[in-house]
């Protein structure tokens, strides 16, 4: 694994084509064929400048690095590349450090307490570089995983996994709900004023639905069946309550797949205790 540590700094092809090895730089080209490396952020750009010149990170020649940094910004501007505010902010930081380096040190502060104006920047660069290394490490781990195979998945293997992570998360739920709301907005609503939709009644509704449909229904189907926005919202809240009480579970067969509402093994137990539903109704002021 020696080469991992060495690979990043050792790549140095002179000239503007230097692809910053660890920042996977993309190059921009304008009509005249002028090329410019692209960096994700100012820290990547600075690290590339430092690597290219084999500068010791704890002793950055701030004047020349600032010059090169500004030169990059000028070239980007000529190519009409919008670099974003963080690049400009870093330019200001560099100039500020440069001017502080020019000031004589405070004679009243003992020498060992004198702070190098570059310290903060160096700290940030090293912190960033740590995660550039970590990204490389993850990439290698992923590469190994990509080259292993497990046996093809049996579709109907019993559900051994009871951990919430492979179950549906809040984000999936909200995403589905957003889609349904979006569609609901675009279709004529036949909502009746003063219609009696309560969270408690929607809980009963979901219970009956699950009982009649063999213990599993598709989430978007349920949402689509709601007559109006009030009913939608009440159903959504009812569903959250049922998940909270462990009466139902939400499952997703695959990433971005259809979400299914299924009876939890506590389903019957939960519905045997009616008081908890009165408590829900009270909470919503029903």
């Amino acid at each position: 694994m020696n080469d991992r540590a060495a690979s990043a700094p050792d790549i140095e092809i002179p000239g503007p084509e230097t692809a910053a090895a660890s920042s996977e730089s993309v190059q921009s080209e304008n009509a005249f064929g002028v090329r410019l490396d692209q960096f994700e952020g100012p820290l990547d750009l600075l690290l590339s400048l430092i690597r290219r010149q084999k500068i010791n990170i704890s002793d950055i020649p701030i004047a020349s690095i600032t010059e090169q940094y500004l030169d990059y910004l000028r070239r980007a501007e000529e190519l009409n590349i919008d670099l974003g505010g963080e690049f400009v902010f870093m330019a200001a930081t560099l100039i500020h450090i440069k001017s502080r380096m020019l000031l004589p040190s405070d004679p009243l502060v003992p020498e060992e307490e004198q702070q190098d104006p570059r310290d903060d920047l160096v700290k940030r660069l090293i912190e960033h570089e740590k995660f550039v290394q970590a990204a490389q490490m993850l990439r290698e781990k992923r590469l190994v995983e990509e080259n292993t195979w497990t046996r093809p998945v049996f579709e109907d293997f019993p559900d051994v996994d009871e951990e919430p992570e492979s179950a549906v998360g809040v984000i999936d739920l909200v995403r589905t709900f957003e889609k349904v709301l979006e569609r609901a907005r675009n279709r004529p609503s036949y909502e009746v004023e003063g219609e009696d939709v309560t969270v408690a009644s929607r809980i009963q509704y979901l219970k009956n639905l699950l009982l009649s449909e063999d213990g599993a229904v598709s989430l978007s189907d349920v949402f689509e069946r709601q007559p109006g926005r009030r009913a939608l919202l009440a159903t959504f809240l009812a569903l959250l309550e049922l998940v909270r009480m462990s009466a139902v579970v939400l499952r997703q067969k695959k990433l971005f797949g259809e979400i299914v509402i299924r009876k939890h093994k506590m389903f019957d137990t939960v519905f045997a205790h009616e008081e908890s539903f009165y408590a829900v109704a009270r909470e919503y002021g029903e």
Binding site: R4, P9, I50, R51, I55, I57, V132, Q133
Partner: peptide
């Protein structure tokens, strides 16, 4: 790793 990558 990072420090040695940065030539320190």
């Amino acid at each position: 790793l990072g420090r040695s990558a940065l030539g320190e």
